[in-house]
Design a protein around this nucleic acid. Structure first.
Lengths: 163, 163
DNA sequence: TCTAAATATTTTACGTTTGTAATATCTCGC
DNA sequence: GCGAGATATTACAAACGTAAAATATTTAGA
């Protein structure tokens, strides 16, 4: 079934390496397009940035809070970066830092009640926006892409062998 | 072969809207993972940033150069943003601004010979890295994902109706 | 045990990228 | 020539990554 087995196929135009490059560019383009839409709506409708929303979404899944390092790993974002985002969210009283008794190096970050309330409203709108943006993608198709992307992420992750 | 043809399948758990949300999160995660790898290698091997590489890649496709506005549209990046990137590339003598005789508002930006030479080497390595990162994705599978992402981008683009 | 080195956690400092808004300059239709 | 629109830059704030610094914890060795 592989393309390589059909020398006469007209589709042989692109060698695998070019094809993978095209895939990567397409991937980048798609996520940037969606990201731009969501960012704009978050700003105009809720006066919040996308990274701040991402942080709140992560915190919402950890009722008891998590440390800064765990947070940065979840978001695939640098450690020093999270500090600034949390600073701004804390200034708005949407999150708070708690000092755990056991380890005085770290902080536990969590949503305030106000933060949780605020987040719930934004998350609802956010889900609707995504649904609207991707309306042409059926459930089966979405599932299919998800599976393939999962494989892709695993592939990228495992490629940890550095030359 | 499609999942939809098996009504008894346990996978029917997720409603379409949740499925689309998962798809979006997966998309974001994949591109961030790949982006991080490429960014790191560009920095360590070639002392260049990803956006700077993106700009050079675009300029490489326009031998006669393009204007700042065209460049920003290509990269899906704000107008004021390109200025800074070009400033830094120009400081390295990798690109240059030409003032066209006809329109004194605009600049034509193009790669210098040094820039083209430098870019060719980076692009070669870049393609190899992508190929390596996505090695588990076959040509047919890549094509399949590309098709689906194209549909997705079209869907997002057409969703220009703003409430 | 006690102290020094190694490790972990966060913040700070710095430079680049990003978007938005405001500004300066220029073109073109009228 | 004037005003609307185009083009690019500047100014500002947020986000991002890396590296270094500041604290705190753990571990190893005498």
């Amino acid at each position: 079934m592989s393309v390589a087995n059909k020398p006469r196929e007209r589709t042989v135009a692109h060698p695998p390496s070019k094809q993978r490059l095209r895939l990567w560019l397409r991937l980048l383009r798609s996520s940037r397009a969606i990201e731009a839409r969501l960012r704009e709506r978050l700003r105009t409708k809720f006066a919040i940035t996308l990274p701040q929303f991402d942080v709140m979404a992560t915190l919402a899944r950890y009722e008891n809070g998590i440390t800064m390092t765990e947070l940065s790993r979840h978001l695939m974002v640098s450690n020093g970066n999270v500090t600034g985002i949390i600073d701004r969210l804390a200034a708005e009283k949407l999150v708070l830092r708690q000092a755990p008794a056991t380890d005085r190096r770290s902080y536990i970050v969590r949503l305030t009640p106000k933060g949780l309330l605020h987040f719930s409203a934004i998350a609802k709108a956010h889900e609707e926006w995504v649904d609207e943006l991707l309306v042409d993608i059926g459930a089966a198709e979405a599932e299919s892409i998800i599976q393939q992307l999962d494989g892709l992420v695993r592939s990228v992750r495992s490629g940890d062998a550095r030359p």
